[in-house]
Design a binder for these strands. Structure first.
Lengths: 197, 197
DNA sequence: ACAACCATGTAAGTAGTTACATGATTTA
DNA sequence: TAAATCATGTAACTACTTACATGGTTGT
């Protein structure tokens, strides 16, 4: 689980209160790890109990904004976690399930949905492009900047990956289902990926 | 949530009992939607309660293997679900969080982990390649086969995406952290993706 | 008869989502 | 002073994970 460590990292960059973090998760951080404010507040509480962060409670008791700061133990925990062995989470993709279902039960209304998703991914790609040319106009010099750029780059590649898949899907779904009549004809691979391996 | 519909689709392809489905989810289906046997049994129960599948309980009461079959209502539900509007789930990527943490707290032991993940993705890519040349030696003729091939292809692209990202990550992390000394120098983008947008 | 494994579960816990609540500041 | 919105929560629920349990079947 990454949320606590994402929060620690964010707080190392900059001390913040819950809603600050929530808005950062809606923008930069959220591009690769989403979290709602409810999750964030709950997790901040846990981090404090664990002794990884401390909060400077609202001075003089009235403004109720609670600013969190990372403690040395939190830094240590983050270091431990980063180097830890973790298996890659298997791909889990709803759209693939729907394409598979399409393949099994025949034409449905998937095409419209796919078109709108293509637009979404194009928008995001454009956004990332703007961010890249603004923040990384030249080759990053420091290791730190290079890593930041890498993360952004992986977002870009991710969007490209989706655009490629979705276009290919359109290509298949768009062709009028003329062969659908003889659908039950060649039922070659019994299941989707067959996989006798 | 896709599991119930993945199960219906699987059962349309072929009637099956819980452990059949579990093993299919460990192989073909599981390449893009993973599920454990506990999930599968629970979900099969729900599908039956909902009237989407029926189970032929073990004949004559002794063999306890329970085979499930999709009912017309289940087919209908699947059709409805496939065409339904669904927003893309945002990318949620643990490794990106760790790279980000590396960027913030400096060198840790991420490199070893990344190398081993590169190997895993290479293996999977090779596996998919074998499946592709076995099941799709020529251009698919039917819409159904084309969709199946598309799903496989997206798995391949997914693995390639990861290999590219991970190699780039190695490139950045491997270079001896000589610039790390002057790390606090240019702190240009305050947070990872800055994102004033 | 005993081991291996097949098939079906139960129980407990974690992570994440959705809906709602509430006081405190800022703005019109 | 009323409305908006900022900041912090609670409650209930769903999906998923991990660990354990148990009877039935098959192979030696």
């Amino acid at each position: 689980m990454s949320l606590p460590h994402a929060l620690i990292t964010a707080l190392i960059e900059q001390d913040a209160c819950g809603s600050d973090l929530a808005s950062r998760f809606d923008r930069s951080i959220g591009y690769f790890w989403h979290a709602t404010h409810q999750q964030i507040y709950r997790e901040l509480g846990r981090l404090e109990v664990a002794g990884w962060v401390e909060s400077l409670p609202p001075e003089s008791g009235r403004g109720r904004k609670r600013v969190y700061r990372v403690l040395p133990a939190g830094r240590k925990e983050l270091q431990r976690w980063v180097a830890e062995q973790q298996d890659p989470k298997p791909m889990r993709d709803e759209l693939m399930v729907r394409l598979w279902a399409e393949a099994v039960i025949g034409p449905t209304g998937l095409v419209k949905e796919i078109r709108s998703r293509i637009d979404l991914h194009k928008e995001k790609l454009a956004l990332y492009g703007r961010i890249e040319s603004r923040d990384f106009p030249s080759v990053p010099r420091t290791r730190e900047a290079a890593l930041r750029r890498l993360v952004l780059h992986s977002g870009i590649q991710y969007e490209r990956y989706w655009l490629e898949i979705l276009s290919a899907a359109l290509g298949v779904l768009d062709r009028p289902a003329k062969e659908c009549l003889k659908k039950s004809a060649d039922h070659a691979p019994e299941t989707l990926l067959v996989a006798k391996e």
